[in-house]
């Protein structure tokens, strides 16, 4: 039930209009970071306030919302955000990717392919891909204006010179439609290929840094690389120990004092769906009670 003491989806109408205008400009200029007057939310900056504001501006009462953090629906911050919208917008919630119409995420893109009927909202901590090369906003804004992305290539190439490969494993920078270099938020680079040609609308909200950016459906998104060192979407060289998936992103779990490890899908819905369909991983058959 909606909490009647708040406006639908918490934010006042003027704030939502301001965010909606920023989202539309973001859609019109894919990958460009649109400044917006981010509001203080009843949750801390850095905990998804940008994503929450974008979600609040997009939700309709008919939506079914899924919230994930690290790919999982049951991590505490995901639970907290889902509860916030169930309370303030009265929307239905789900843990199933294929049932959701709006998905708010932190650090992952779901394994299940998205559809044109979905919107994926990313929580973004530092929206500026050039920030760690140049801390000044006044400078990075100029670099985007002039398409001066040489510094980024130099940094990646220095990695190759020193380590034989690009030593960036998450928040791996991308170029959007050949124009803006964009931070895809701290998703593992394993997820980068899913950014491109995605049928769903992808929206990115950075509350503390007051930026919104967007990828319309089917937008071309290229991970930065070099001819002699092509981008590689890597993951741990294991299968999921619960569902046996060989092509999903894995969490590493330490299971005892001796440091025994197992690998499980970070996308909990994907993993559960596979197990329901009868797939079994190395440790599942012997540990059925783990389903509790």
């Amino acid at each position: 039930m909606t909490d009647q003491s708040y406006n639908f989806a918490y934010l006042d109408e003027q704030t939502k209009r301001m965010i909606r205008r920023a989202i539309l400009k973001g859609i019109a200029v894919p990958g460009y970071q649109v400044p917006f007057a981010s509001r203080e939310m009843p949750m801390p900056y850095g905990w998804g306030t940008g994503g929450v504001q974008v979600t609040a501006a997009c939700l309709v009462p008919e939506d079914r919302l899924k919230v994930i953090d690290q790919g999982a629906d049951d991590t505490t911050n995901a639970v907290s955000i889902r509860k916030f919208f169930a309370r303030t917008a009265g929307v239905a919630t789900t843990e199933r990717t294929d049932e959701a119409t709006v998905i708010q995420t932190r650090h992952r893109i779901p394994e299940t392919p998205l559809t044109p009927d979905q919107i994926l909202v990313y929580q973004v901590p530092i929206p500026e891909p050039l920030r760690f090369l140049e801390p000044r906003e006044s400078e990075t804004r100029k670099m985007h204006e002039l398409e001066e992305y040489g510094l980024m290539h130099v940094k990646l190439y220095e990695d190759i010179a020193r380590h034989g490969q690009i030593a960036t494993s998450y928040a791996y920078p991308v170029r959007v439609e050949g124009r803006y270099v964009m931070d895809p938020s701290p998703i593992p680079k394993f997820d980068n290929p899913k950014l491109s040609g995605c049928p769903a609308i992808q929206l990115f909200g950075a509350g503390r840094e007051q930026r919104i950016y967007a990828l319309p459906p089917w937008t071309e998104v290229v991970s930065l690389d070099f001819d002699d060192h092509p981008f590689e979407a890597s993951k741990a060289a294991h299968d999921c120990d619960l569902c046996g998936a060989g092509h999903s992103y894995l969490d590493e779990v330490i299971t005892d004092d001796q440091g025994t490890r197992m690998f499980v899908c970070s996308d909990t819905d994907f993993c559960a769906g596979r197990r329901e369909a009868g797939h079994q991983g190395r440790l599942w058959a012997s540990q059925p009670e783990a389903a509790e």
Partner: peptide, 22 residues
């Protein structure tokens, strides 16, 4: 702003950490 961002590093970062681990 500062305290939110500072304290957010106690949220789960399994995914990024796993990427760094690999």
């Amino acid at each position: 702003q500062a305290t939110g961002f500072l304290e957010h590093i106690k949220l789960p970062h399994y995914v990024d950490f796993q990427a760094e681990l690999e």
